[in-house]
Nucleic acid binder design. Sequence first.
DNA 1: CTCTTGACTGAGG
DNA 2: GCCTCAGCCAAGA
Length: 112
Amino acid sequence: MKPETLNFFDKVYEVAKQIPYGRVTSYGAIAKYLGAAKSARMVGYAMNGSTGKDVPAHRVVNRKGLLTGKHHFDGTNLMQQLLESEGVIVVDNQIQDFDNVFWDPANNLLAK
DNA sequence: CTCTTGACTGAGG
DNA sequence: GCCTCAGCCAAGA
């Protein structure tokens, strides 16, 4: 099947599932990997339906490492707790040492 | 079909 | 480094 066979949303889910434990990435990184760097917002929009799809949406944050999507989780601090459970330091909805835990799909699914 | 909204990003001040 | 503006594309009303 061709990549075009998959919907944009499905592609986002597939990439999100590839995020290793204790790592995070940004919407833009995923969007760029999918060839839709201009559609970073669509990634977030797609994640809207990620709940209940085995997609670690808590590992996806904006380029600042800020947990912009935490409001979409059940609890108010659920997203932060999930990240901290994986060894990611989160303070005030923002990931600490972001560059260290950042995971770029284009630099791992391809190069690696 | 048109308008609004949005889990974003980059550029400019 | 922070704030504001504009561009981006898809889905829902």
